[in-house]
Computed example of a mutant assay.
Amino acid sequence: MIKISIVDDEALFLEGINLLFSIVENIRVVSSTTSAMEMIDKLSNISKVNFPDIILVDILMKPVDGFELVERLKKKYPDLKIIILSSHYKQNVLGHMFKLGISAFIPKNANKELLVNTIESVYKTGVCFTKKDHEMLIEFMNSKIKKPTLTNTEELSEREKEVLKLICLGHTNKKIADKLFLSKRTIESHRQRIMQKTGVKNTVGLVIYAIANHIYKLPIHYYTV
């Protein structure tokens, strides 16, 4: 069962989304609210068993908008998966949100299949991109973001690149260890060194770093809107 929370200041839209998920067997809404601050409070007080795997966030909200909410959530819960569900599906918005560490961006006019498939994909692999996302994100990175540089002069080793590719595929440390015939502790050490060298703080950041440095090519999901 995938546990999700939703924050959107349009009460009617929020009610509709809750109704939609009430008939989806493998997704359960554990909390929903029209206020970003209320969502922050809910997460601070929610039990571990009901803590969401994924949060769906709108962008245009007051007084705290989606940009600020995502930034706050990623600071407090760096591994929390966040999906943006917004009508403001533009290159600069998409690019900025991915820099903040979101896992996916869904237009509000998306159909049920895209919404459910994106949630399932993010739950399994950590990120989900459509073909359009991929094109917009690559163009944004090429035009507005300088290629990320390592925090020191040491480059990633071939083994670290191999581990990074498997991290991008959503594999756990244990699964990577099994694939590479190494111990879990060794993989944990590789992951830590990769994060130190790249200067990123979470898995989404590693994925974006790997894409920008041509270490990993995005799997593109050909869902229709």
Results as ranks from 00 to 15, higher is better:
211 I>L: 11
222 Y>M: 10
124 K>A: 03
3 K>W: 04
195 M>K: 15
201 K>H: 13
154 E>Y: 12
224 T>P: 00
97 M>G: 02
187 I>K: 10
137 L>R: 10
173 N>I: 01
20 L>S: 06
147 K>G: 04
174 K>L: 05
72 R>Y: 02
221 H>R: 13
85 L>N: 05
99 K>N: 13
131 K>Q: 13
38 E>P: 03
53 D>I: 02
13 F>S: 12
37 M>Q: 14
16 G>Q: 09
134 H>E: 14
138 I>H: 00
155 E>P: 08
194 I>E: 07
223 Y>E: 15
24 V>L: 06
43 L>S: 06
130 T>P: 12
155 E>Q: 13
4 I>D: 11
99 K>H: 14
57 V>G: 02
20 L>I: 11
29 V>D: 11
60 L>Y: 03
188 E>V: 11
205 G>T: 04
70 V>M: 01
110 A>M: 03
143 S>G: 04
27 I>C: 09
162 E>S: 12
184 K>G: 12
189 S>Y: 03
77 Y>T: 06
225 V>K: 13
110 A>W: 02
48 K>T: 00
164 L>P: 10
38 E>L: 05
154 E>G: 02
133 D>M: 12
151 T>I: 02
225 V>Y: 11
193 R>L: 15
52 P>L: 03
130 T>K: 12
76 K>G: 01
27 I>F: 05
164 L>S: 05
48 K>L: 07
59 I>C: 07
50 N>E: 15
180 L>P: 01
